[in-house]
Design a protein around this nucleic acid. Structure first.
Lengths: 132, 132
DNA sequence: CTGGATCCGCGCGGATACTG
DNA sequence: CAGTATCCGCGCGGATCCAG
C-alpha cells in the first residue's frame, strides 16, 4: 500500500518519506481520544481499574479495557495482577509511558491554555456563517 | 451530561474537575488521526487542496475536506480562495495553528524516536501471549 | 481544481448480561 | 473487583458521481 514509487530524487528524502509513513501509522495508532485520556489519568499515579474508570469519568468499561490492552501491548502501560479475592489489577505507566507523558501533557496544557481562543474562533466562525 | 454532582469537597478541586472535563472535550475534538496529520502537513508551509492530499497520501478527499473544515472552524487553519479558473484554495496555519504545531511536533518526534521501542514491545507482547 | 452529495460497509463505542 | 461476551445503533471513512 501507499506505493508512491515516483519522486525518488534524493536518498535522504526517500528515507524521510518512508519514516514519515511509519510515523503516521504510529501516530494514528496512538493518537485517539481514549489513549490520551488514559495516559493522562495514569500520569497522576498507578490506578486500579475502577479507580481509573472514575477518574476519566466519561469512558465506558469496554473502551477502558480495550485502550488499556492496546497501551500494554505498546509497552506504555504495565498491568500488575494481585491474585486475591477480590482480585486487584493495578495499571501504571512504564518508563516508556512516563516518557510519553511529556508530549501528551504538552498537548493537554496547550489545549488548556488556548481553549478560550478556540471557543472564540468557533463562535466567530458560526457568526460568519450567518452573513453568507 | 456528565452530571457527577457528588464529590464537591473543595472549591479548588471542583474547579479542576470542571476544567478537566473541558480539556477532555477539547482533546477529543482535536486529537484524532487526521487532524494531527493535516496539522503536521501544513506545518511545512501553506498548501492547496490536492497538494495537501498528496502530501498526506493516505487520506481520502472526504476526510481532508472534513478535517480542514473543522480546523478552520477551530481557528487553527485559514482558508484563502483565489477566484480564478480553475479555482485556487490555499490552506495555511493561523498563528494559533502555528502555535499548536509545537505540541503536535513534539508528539510526532516522540513517536519517531521511540517507534522502535514500541514495535519491540509489541513483539515481546505477542511472544508472551504464546507462552500462555 | 475544489469540493459537495450520496451510498454503503465496517468498526467504534455504549448497554447489558454473565464469569471468576 | 475486573473483566469477557454479545447485541446493536450510529458515525467514520472510502468510493463514486456530480457541480462550479
Amino acid at each position: 500500500m501507499l506505493a508512491q514509487e515516483g519522486t525518488i530524487s534524493k536518498p535522504g528524502e526517500q528515507k524521510d518519506t518512508a519514516t514519515c509513513e511509519h510515523i503516521s501509522r504510529m501516530l494514528s495508532r496512538i493518537c485517539d481520544k481514549w489513549t490520551v485520556l488514559v495516559i493522562r489519568a495514569l500520569g497522576r499515579g498507578p490506578r486500579r481499574f475502577n479507580a481509573l474508570r472514575r477518574d476519566i469519568g466519561e469512558i465506558s468499561q469496554k473502551m477502558l479495557t480495550q485502550t488499556l490492552k492496546e497501551l500494554e501491548e505498546n509497552g506504555l502501560v504495565s498491568r500488575t495482577v494481585t491474585p486475591v479475592t477480590p482480585p486487584q489489577v493495578e495499571y501504571a505507566l512504564t518508563e516508556l509511558g512516563k516518557d510519553f507523558l511529556r508530549p501528551v501533557r504538552a498537548l493537554a496544557t496547550w489545549v488548556a491554555v488556548h481553549s478560550d481562543q478556540i471557543t472564540e474562533a468557533r463562535s466567530v466562525y458560526a457568526e460568519a456563517r450567518i452573513n453568507v
